[in-house]
């Protein structure tokens, strides 16, 4: 895949970190405002997608990243399951998905028990998954059209 012009490359270089940080913001405030793990994860992944589209020639290097992303995705989703299953052990009455952390004050960043934790995990997982899907499809298309 060919990259784009130097203007596009420069602009994405500035924009991608901003988009990524906005994604992190959406994930972290998932329990306080609309958004959350999935939406934030997609925004985070879009920063990667923007970079790949602008700098198409780095695609060959990305083949290694794909397995790393897959690893991150599996680990994150296993973490989600572990946090959910910890409730079975920590809640005292064997409740799956029990909110075993302190609930805190409504409206504060550190509140709502395990929900922010699960949001962060979901955000990581979705970001990795969507980036993996995108890279896989792009690499795939590259192979087919050659």
């Amino acid at each position: 895949m060919k990259g784009m012009t130097v203007i596009v490359k420069k602009v994405t270089q500035f924009m991608a970190p901003v988009i990524f940080i906005f994604g992190i913001y959406v994930v972290l405030n998932g329990h306080l405002s609309p958004g959350g793990g999935f939406a934030g994860g997609v925004i985070m992944a879009s920063a990667f997608i923007l970079q790949i589209l602008a700098n198409g020639e780095i695609l060959d290097k990305l083949r290694k990243e794909e397995s790393g992303l897959e690893f991150l995705e599996s680990t994150a989703i296993l973490g989600f399951l572990v946090v959910a299953a910890l409730g079975l052990l920590l809640s005292g009455s064997f409740v799956f998905f029990s909110n075993f952390l302190k609930q805190g004050v409504i409206g504060e960043l550190l509140s709502a028990g395990i929900i922010p934790l699960e949001n962060i995990i979901v955000g990581t997982e979705v970001c990795a998954a969507i980036a993996t899907i995108f890279i896989a499809l792009v690499v795939f298309k590259d192979e087919v059209t050659k």
């Binding site: 896989a136 499809l137 795939f140 192979e143």
Partner: peptide, 24 residues
Amino acid sequence: ILTAIVIGLATTALLLALAIRLYR
């Protein structure tokens, strides 16, 4: 809907991958 969107994402990605394979 959020759940349905995630499922739809997986289905569409898989279908597109199959379509590319079929094209090859």
